[in-house]
Computed example of a mutant assay.
Amino acid sequence: MSDSETKDIPILFLKTRSLPHEQYNEFFASNPLDNAVFTPLFIPVLKHHHVNLDNLKTHLITKFDSADPDSYGGLVITSQRTAEALSSIIPALPPTTLQNLFANTKVWVVGPATGSALVRLGFAASNVLGQNSGNGEALAELILESYGSRPKPLLFLAGETRRDIIPKTLSIAPEGRNITVETLTVYETIVDEGFETEFGKVIEEMKDTTRWIVLFSPTGADIAIDVLAKDLTSPSSGSYLAAIGPTTEKHLVDKLSRKPDVVAEKPTPQSLWEGIRVFTQRDRVKGDDVTIGDD
C-alpha cells in the first residue's frame, strides 16, 4: 500500500445512536487518522424508555420560581438520555415556565454533548456549566465551588441505574457548603434483546479485518463480554478495545483480565480520537498499519 492510499477502519460504538446529532459519528467520519479513514457503526446495547414525565413536568412548573425560597436552585443532568427525557416534555410546558426555565435555570452537566443538547433545547449557554468536568466526581466538586453559600436544593435527573456519587458528595460536604440533592428517575434501561446476535454477526463479517470496539459503560461491557471474550481469544482477531472513562476500564480488566488499548480521559469523541492517535504513535503504527492483524 502506498503512502497516499487510504484504508477504511471500522469503529464499532456499542451504544444507541443519539438523535438528532450523534457526536461520535460526526467527529470520526470527518477526522481521519494518518491514512486511516474511520467508518463508524453503532450497535445498540441497551434500550431506554422514559418514566415519571408527569412528575418532571410538575416539578418544572411549580418548583423553579426564583422568588420562591422552597424552589430548586438548578438542575443536574449527566447524560444525553436524561436530556432527551427532558426534551420530550418541553412542548407541554406553559410559555412562562419555558421562558423562566431557559433564561434563569442553572444546569450542571457532564460532557459537552449533553451541554450542547441542552443549549440547542433552549437553555442559556451561560447557565450550562461543567461541560468539561468529564465525570460525576469532578462535576460534584465544581458544583461545590461554584454554587455559593446556603444554596437551594438541586434536582438531579437520572436513569434508574446510576452511581450516586454526585448526591453523596454534595450532601456530605462540610457544613455551610453541603447541598441537598433530590433525585428524579426519568428513564429506565433494558437490554436490547438483539444485541448479542447483531454484535456477533458484525464481528464474524469483519473476520480478519482490523477494527476498534468502543465501550461506554460497565453495563454495556457486561452485556458484550461473551462476544468480546470469543473474539479476543481468536488467533485472527483484529480488534482493539477502547473504553470511555476509568470505571469502564476497570470493569473490563475485572471481567476480561485485559486492559483496553485506549481509555478516553473525557467522554468526548475528541478525547477518544486523541487516545487512539497517541496509541498508534506510541506503538509506532502508522497509516495503513493503524491497527493489528491486517498484514
Rank of each mutant, 00 (worst) to 15 (best):
T268V: 05
A264N: 07
I165N: 05
E265V: 14
S257V: 03
S149N: 06
P20L: 12
R81F: 06
T82L: 04
L12W: 10
K106N: 08
P112Q: 15
L118K: 05
H49R: 08
L129V: 15
A158Q: 08
K15W: 03
P20I: 15
I172Y: 03
L86P: 01
T82M: 04
E137K: 15
K255G: 08
L14S: 05
R277F: 08
R162V: 11
E26T: 05
G287F: 13
H21V: 15
K230Y: 10
T114Y: 03
R17A: 12
L12E: 11
V285F: 09
R177P: 00
R211K: 14
E84N: 08
S79C: 03
D289G: 13
G148V: 12
N100W: 03
H59T: 05
T233K: 14
T62L: 10
P69F: 13
Y24G: 02
K106Y: 07
R162S: 09
R177D: 09
H48D: 07
R162Q: 12
L154P: 01
K7L: 12
H59V: 06
A264P: 02
L142A: 12
D164R: 10
P44S: 10
E22C: 13
I165R: 01
D34K: 14
F195P: 02
M1L: 07
V191M: 03
P151R: 11
L75C: 03
W108I: 04
I203P: 00
E188W: 01
N104I: 01
F42R: 05
S237Y: 10
T219F: 05
V181K: 02
V214W: 09
F199W: 09
Q99G: 07
P235T: 05
L56T: 01
K286A: 10
